[in-house]
Structures are given as structure tokens and as C-alpha cells.
Amino acid sequence: MRRIDVVGITLGVFLVGGLAYLLLEKIGLDSMSAGIWSQVLLVGALIVWLVTYLTRVLGQNMTYNQQLQDYKEAVLQKRLEELTPEELEKLQTEIEQENQEGKVQKKANC
């Protein structure tokens, strides 16, 4: 996120808070109650944003994590494309052997 984006979001939050205050006064609340309720709305919105942020962090569903995963997949794909048919066949054979060894170990553990 760029600094100008942060500045824009901050100004937007202040404007929303001010508009909420004016709207609540217009509805008929006195200035003290309107101020309190506009703060309650802003703090509630902040808590909702925080919960969604923590959900994305704990679920590793952040932009950085997705970019890193895409990069790793692209590197692996490029390496696979650069393999000769003989190397690719050898790799497939090794993977099949590892899978069969894993199955044998799972059966032994059961």
C-alpha cells in the first residue's frame, strides 16, 4: 500500500466519522450523544476490520503470501519445463517410489 493510499483512507475515515456525527445530530440527538454514537460506530468498524485482518493473517490469505505461493509455483513450473524427457521420467519414477514407500509406512503404522 502506498503512502497516498494510507492518507486517503485516513481522510475517508475522518469524513465518515464527521458525516455520521452530522447525520445523528440531524436525526435529533444532542451533540454529546451524537459524538458518542459516531465514535461507537467508528470503533465498531475498526473492530470489524481488525477481525477480518486477523482472519486473513491466521489463514495465510494475505497478498504477500499469495504472491510468494504464485512465485514458487512459477519457479517449479519453469524448472519442470527445462527438464529433458529422461530427467522428467527419472523424477516421476522417484516420486512414485516415495509414494509407495509412504503407503507402506502408513499401513505399518495402522
Rank of each mutant, 00 (worst) to 15 (best):
M1G: 15
M1T: 09
M1S: 13
R2G: 14
R2H: 09
R3A: 13
I4A: 10
D5L: 07
D5K: 05
V6F: 14
V6R: 15
V7N: 00
G8I: 04
G8Q: 02
G8L: 13
I9P: 04
I9D: 11
T10I: 12
L11H: 01
G12N: 02
G12E: 01
G12D: 02
G12L: 03
G12Q: 01
F14K: 01
F14T: 03
F14Y: 14
L15H: 02
G17N: 09
G17W: 06
G17L: 04
G18Y: 14
L19Q: 06
A20Y: 03
A20H: 02
A20R: 00
Y21N: 01
L23Q: 09
L24G: 00
E25D: 12
E25L: 14
K26I: 06
K26T: 11
G28P: 00
G28L: 00
D30C: 00
M32F: 14
M32H: 12
A34F: 00
A34C: 00
A34S: 13
G35I: 01
I36V: 15
W37H: 04
W37Q: 07
W37E: 03
W37F: 15
V40L: 15
V40S: 01
L41H: 01
L41F: 15
L42H: 08
V43C: 05
G44V: 02
G44T: 15
A45V: 06
A45Y: 05
A45P: 01
A45S: 12
W49G: 10
W49I: 08
V51G: 02
L54M: 10
R56I: 05
R56K: 10
V57M: 05
V57N: 01
V57D: 03
L58G: 09
L58Y: 09
L58R: 12
G59W: 02
M62Q: 11
M62A: 04
T63E: 11
Y64E: 12
Q67F: 07
Q67I: 08
D70H: 08
D70W: 05
Y71L: 11
K72P: 02
E73A: 11
E73W: 04
A74L: 09
V75C: 03
Q77E: 15
K78S: 12
K78Y: 07
R79C: 06
R79S: 06
L80V: 04
E81T: 05
E81S: 10
E82M: 11
E82H: 04
L83R: 12
T84A: 02
T84N: 00
T84L: 04
E86T: 11
E87L: 05
E87S: 03
L88V: 03
L91M: 13
L91N: 09
Q92V: 05
Q92L: 11
Q92F: 06
T93R: 14
T93L: 08
E94D: 10
I95K: 15
E96T: 06
E98F: 08
N99T: 08
N99A: 10
Q100N: 08
E101N: 12
E101V: 05
K103V: 06
K103Y: 09
V104H: 09
V104M: 13
V104R: 15
Q105L: 14
Q105N: 12
A108V: 06
A108S: 13
C110T: 09
C110R: 13
